[in-house]
Every structure is written in C-alpha cells, then in structure tokens.
Simulated scan of single mutants.
Amino acid sequence: MIKRGTVKEQLTVDSVSIKKNGSCPLMPEEVGLLLQALGYPSTTIIYLAGSETFGGQRILIPLRAMYANLVDRTSLCSQRELSDLAGPESPLSSDLPHPPPPKSEKELIEEWKKAGPRPRPLPPPPARPFYAHEKEGWYGWIGENDTEPDPSPIEFRRQAHRLLWDALDYFVSVQADAFFPGFHNDGSGWPDYSSLIMGHRLYQTPSGITYRPD
C-alpha cells in the first residue's frame, strides 16, 4: 500500500506493547525457548491443549525439534476413543435439496429458444455480517443470538464435539504438573481458555506450577 501511494504515512508496530496487551500470542518456538530457559529437559512430555494451532503443524516443527514428546488428544486417543467420549449418536437425516435431473442438449436448446428477454444482472449481494461468536472467541458461539441464522443439526453436533474435546484438554491442563499458556488476556475483558485454567489450578492445586508469560 505504501508503494501504491494508498498509505503515505510511516507505519510502525510496537511489538512490545502488543505482546503486553495480549494481542500477540507466543509462537511455539518461543514457548520451547522459554521452557529450555526454565530448565525443562528435552525428554519432558508436553501436552498441547487447544482447538487448533494457528498455522497448522508446520508451526510446531521448531517446538517438536526441542521436545520430541509433544502430544495432543489426537495422538494419545484413537478415533474410537474420541467417538466414545461423545457417546452413541443417532444418524442425522440428510435435508439437503436434491439436484434436478440432467437435461439433454436438445432440451436445453428448446428452453433457450422459448425463454423471453434476458434479465439484467442482479447487483452483488451485501457483505456477510460478522456475528458475535466470530468477534469474541471460543465462548461466543456457545450463547444464542437472535440475529444469527439457525445452525444445522450437523453444526450443532460439531459444536458439541468441540466442547467435549475442549473439556478433555481443560481437564488435562488442570491436572498437569505444570501449565504454560501460550496466550493469555486478549484485552477484551472476557475470560479466555488459559485464564480459566489458571484460575481453576489456583483454586484446586495452589502448589502447582503455573507460568504467566505476561
């Protein structure tokens, strides 16, 4: 944008203030360096809690190089065990509309000849609104909002599975010997996943080791 002249002023980013504000989570490599500085050996078993890692498995390569015993729920639990966690589920009925039967080339030509004047193209649709669960984080989509469309049954089931898997990670994090959050206090005023775990650990096991990178 600077080369094109869209932005003429100088752009600067204060990474220190952003990290202090909680808007810049620690990268896995930074977590590994901090754990090494704290004296944890390379044989330490690290459980990676959380729904998804920003950047995918590629971002975890430096951390895996430092600590080979990096595990998560997918590596410790089989697909059958994760399914048993959800319990028996009835199959969902497919309510998707069926496509119309294909037409021959002759039928398409006849329909084209019988069609009247071609309508003018419609204007582009309005931009999709951003809902509360997309702005607030993992806790936003749990509550209902009248302005959001009704989710499909399969979406309800996916959300239920995510809650169960997050609960499993939560339980492991609370019971762990030490807890090191990679992200804490995003500045929104709402409790995030890490702050809930730290509060639970402080209440249940005050003697447990809980690090606060901020």
Results as ranks from 00 to 15, higher is better:
L85D: 06
N21I: 00
R157T: 05
N185L: 07
G32A: 13
R158P: 02
G22C: 03
E136Y: 11
G182T: 07
P213Y: 00
I142F: 12
R118N: 03
P191E: 09
D214A: 10
H98V: 13
A132C: 09
A37R: 06
A115Y: 01
G182W: 00
D72H: 12
L164D: 05
E81G: 13
P126Q: 11
G39A: 12
Y211D: 03
A115H: 01
T210W: 02
P101Y: 02
L11A: 07
D192S: 08
G137Y: 01
D14A: 13
L76A: 12
T74H: 14
A160C: 04
P191K: 05
A68T: 13
S17C: 06
K103W: 00
T44A: 11
T43Q: 08
R212N: 15
S152G: 07
P124W: 08
M66G: 03
Q159C: 10
L70G: 06
W141S: 13
S207V: 08
L11P: 04
H200V: 13
S83N: 14
P125R: 05
E111A: 14
H200L: 12
K3L: 14
K103N: 07
A115D: 04
P97F: 01
P102N: 00
I209P: 04
Y203P: 04
R162A: 15
A176V: 08
D214F: 08
P41R: 11
K114G: 01
P149T: 02
P153C: 08
R4C: 11
P41G: 13
P99Y: 08
E9K: 08
V7L: 02
L196A: 11
A37H: 02
L60I: 04
D95I: 12
R64W: 01
S15Y: 09
I154H: 10
Y47W: 15
Q204A: 15
D84W: 04
S207E: 13
L96F: 07
Y211G: 06
E110F: 07
K135W: 05
G116S: 07
A37F: 02
N145Y: 11
F179P: 03
R158I: 11
S90L: 15
T74C: 14
D150V: 06
L202E: 14
V174A: 02
P102W: 01
E144Y: 11
A115W: 00
P151A: 01
P62D: 03
E29A: 15
Y67V: 08
W112C: 09
G55K: 09
A49V: 12
S83E: 15
E155M: 07
P100W: 03
P100S: 12
A176W: 06
F156T: 04
I197C: 05
I154T: 07
I209M: 03
E136R: 13
A86V: 09
K113A: 09
V172D: 07
N145D: 14
R4M: 10
P181E: 07
G32P: 00
A160G: 01
L34V: 09
I46H: 06
Q204T: 14
Q36R: 15
T205Y: 07
K19T: 15
S75Q: 09
R162H: 12
S194Y: 01
P151I: 04
S195Y: 00
P121N: 11
I18F: 04
I46Y: 03
K19A: 15
E9L: 06
C77H: 12
Q175R: 12
R58C: 02
I154P: 00
Y131R: 13
E111Y: 02
